[in-house]
Amino acid sequence: MFTFLLVVQAIIGALLVTVILMQRSEGGGLTSGGGSPGGLMSARGASDFLTRSTAVLATLFIAMSILLAVLAATRSSSTIDTSLARDPAPVQAPATQPDQAAPPVVDQAPANAGEEADIPLAQ
């Protein structure tokens, strides 16, 4: 949706530039004569058409700019915004407390290992 509105904004901007550049600096119209005097494309009719077109396109451009600014402010696709918005992963506590050492593991033979065969374990 945002991309579509951004493309529409660019089209409106290009049309606005075109309509403004088509006007004469003295306030004349697109043509300097020709056609019927009361028609749309007469000197006066073209001037009124371009003036109205400029006003409508400028209004649309400003409205679209405000809409896009609001949409951009509410959209959270930035990696900075999303990383700050997430809660950090919970930290699991170790099995033993940091001030207590784990008991040492001693490799011992079973007490009755030598009794079954009546063989001494060490010589």
Rank of each mutant, 00 (worst) to 15 (best):
M1E: 13
T3R: 14
F4T: 12
F4N: 10
F4L: 13
L6T: 13
L6Q: 13
V7C: 10
V7F: 11
A10I: 11
A10P: 00
G13D: 03
L15A: 13
L15N: 07
L16I: 03
L16M: 11
L16S: 09
V17S: 12
V19P: 01
V19K: 01
V19R: 01
V19N: 03
L21W: 05
M22Q: 11
Q23C: 09
R24E: 08
S25V: 04
E26G: 15
G27C: 10
G27E: 05
G27W: 04
G29C: 06
L30M: 13
L30K: 01
L30R: 02
G33V: 06
G34W: 05
G34V: 03
G34D: 07
G34Y: 04
G35I: 04
S36M: 08
P37W: 06
P37H: 09
P37D: 12
A43I: 06
G45S: 09
G45R: 02
G45M: 08
A46W: 02
D48T: 10
D48I: 12
D48W: 00
F49R: 06
F49E: 02
R52W: 00
S53I: 01
S53D: 04
S53R: 01
S53M: 10
T54C: 10
V56Y: 07
L57M: 08
A58V: 00
T59I: 06
L60W: 02
F61N: 14
F61V: 01
I62L: 15
I62T: 13
I62S: 10
A63G: 14
M64G: 11
S65H: 00
L67K: 05
A69I: 06
V70A: 15
V70Q: 07
V70D: 02
V70L: 15
L71N: 05
L71D: 06
L71P: 01
A73Y: 06
T74M: 13
S76T: 13
S76P: 00
S76R: 15
T79G: 14
I80V: 13
I80C: 03
D81G: 07
T82R: 15
S83T: 12
S83N: 11
A85S: 15
R86T: 12
D87R: 14
P88A: 15
A89K: 11
A89W: 05
P90G: 10
V91W: 04
Q92Y: 03
Q92W: 02
Q92L: 13
A95V: 11
Q97N: 14
P98F: 10
P98D: 14
D99N: 12
D99K: 11
D99Q: 11
Q100R: 15
A101N: 08
P104L: 12
P104F: 02
V105H: 02
V105Y: 02
Q108N: 12
A109M: 11
A109V: 09
A111C: 05
A111K: 05
E116G: 09
A117K: 04
A117E: 05
I119T: 10
I119N: 06
A122F: 11
A122R: 06
Q123I: 05
Q123Y: 02
